[in-house]
Nucleic acid binder design. Sequence first.
DNA 1: CTGAAAGCGCTAACAA
DNA 2: TTGTTAGCGCTTTCAG
Lengths: 336, 336
Amino acid sequence: MRGTGRTTLEEVAAHAGVSTMTASRALSQPRLVSDATRAKVELAVAELGYVPNRAARALASAQSRVIVALVPSLSNVVFTAVLDGIQDALAAGDYQLLIGNTRYSDAEEEKLLRTYLQSNPDGILLSSLSHSPEVARMLAASRVPAVSMMDLADEADVDRMSVGFSQLDAGGALTRHLLGRGYRRIAFIGAQLDERTLRRADGYRQAMRAAGLADPRLEIMTPEPSTIALGAELMRQALETLPDCDAVFCCNDDLAHGAIYYCQRHAVRVPQDVAIAGFNDLPASAWMVPSLTTVDTPRYRIGYEAATLLLDVVGGRVPRATRVDLGFTLRERESA
Amino acid sequence: MRGTGRTTLEEVAAHAGVSTMTASRALSQPRLVSDATRAKVELAVAELGYVPNRAARALASAQSRVIVALVPSLSNVVFTAVLDGIQDALAAGDYQLLIGNTRYSDAEEEKLLRTYLQSNPDGILLSSLSHSPEVARMLAASRVPAVSMMDLADEADVDRMSVGFSQLDAGGALTRHLLGRGYRRIAFIGAQLDERTLRRADGYRQAMRAAGLADPRLEIMTPEPSTIALGAELMRQALETLPDCDAVFCCNDDLAHGAIYYCQRHAVRVPQDVAIAGFNDLPASAWMVPSLTTVDTPRYRIGYEAATLLLDVVGGRVPRATRVDLGFTLRERESA
DNA sequence: CTGAAAGCGCTAACAA
DNA sequence: TTGTTAGCGCTTTCAG
């Protein structure tokens, strides 16, 4: 006695008085089957409550119809928006999405990829450009098409597919905005120190250097995860150690929110005493008091376009582009 | 020419000079194999870069090692925390988690369940107690063990497994806290109107009635999704239509944040002019100014314990309890 | 448009 | 401890 005990396609076929193969066709390639036959099969399916067995289909067809998405966090709205976009793009085809949460850890990413490759995915969506050597090896060995999300690959790197925007440019643009408002001693508060944060910091640094205002002491960096609490703490440090600091560029909105709350509690006026800017434009940023100057990032579209590009490649279609720059938008508000 | 072209277990076995079955055992039940044989197989696996084919395993063993989790939203930190808990509980065994985002829609839930049942899951985690008739039918027909998360099933409902806390009691407790602080005209602001919100509203209503202060005009309800913007808008409505209102119970923290920001912008003092309370204790709630009085809910543990319970049942073990009340904690802060 | 045969890659069941 | 055989439920392939 093996098997799951569920109704099989063979039983459906018998019930409908056709061969298994015809029943199979009626369900997956209905055009190849006559109307009458299809109706018989559909009736049998309904009467028997047939549920196709995906494992059997995957094994026989050598096609899993599985897409893997690896994101560094689920508690960050940025990545859940990316996932929303992916799911919408996948909704049409009957693809199954396997979501892996790497928790910003190379070891976790490796473990997840190893597991998910067992499902023989048709494609993979990644949240960063660089990976541990072992992950890079597994990706290459698997020969599964992969698209990197969030940042853009080097233009020279033609084999690489990527959808996102230039974190470097965005960091530069926000810094130049602050410089344009007349701020001179602009601190950079960075946490987590993932790839994207470091690129934003690069953008900040370049802009400060171009203005002749670069100063390494202005950079307050920590590998701790970004939280509101940490934002408050780093703001305290900034005010304490940099008395002449007139603006703070927080590497993301979570930190910026914490920084603003800290200032509110300690009667530091924003932006009169110190300006504060963030990154990502989270939902609260437009509503808080003062409203937060930040960079709006197209995360939903990143997910949507990345999945669309991947499906094109998987389906053997020629994509319009393999490097898709979706840009970013500066949101100039009250805080800076 | 069929198949994926990948290395198969048969090739590994040949390379190691053993039978396919022995190679299979060496990988999945290493204790049944001698040390020498196991070493040979492991070497072959490494040399050939063998990746097991999960579909084949699922088909042959009639066991998918897949757990499905259905949540109403990914952009809500509450449910991503639940998912974190689930993933941690699942980390030990080699289970694969299929995450379905129903977007608060019965139709979506139905579609997702129909798709995911094709993977013959070993267990299902649900985010609500009640479901559409079709979903209920599919769940029953599939005979897959299911655990409901967030709210608790009726104690009489012995067959039902559930992990969470009483939304009714929590709504009542928060309302009684407000009454204890002397507030009398307490409005209830509700959005989304999902099952959990409605139960909290019930708790509010019962507490108000017990105090002889019930008044249907105090309830401002809308099926729109909860957002900060909506919280601000509903707060405006409350202040406008209920001039004597002295406190507002927001059905979740998102709305409460919007309400507080609205008051800040319009020089309404919280809690002096009007008190505001929320539900869920989101990260920002403890840090904003004024800090938000709310109910802390054990969502991470709900996910963890629900998955643990499900694995017990799936594994044929007898669980300690099939109805797990994890309680809630009132956070008394500045806003109410 | 329909069907028969074979096999995807693995493990259950039994035998040695 | 190891091997043999059969088969999981479906689709590919080829023949009608």
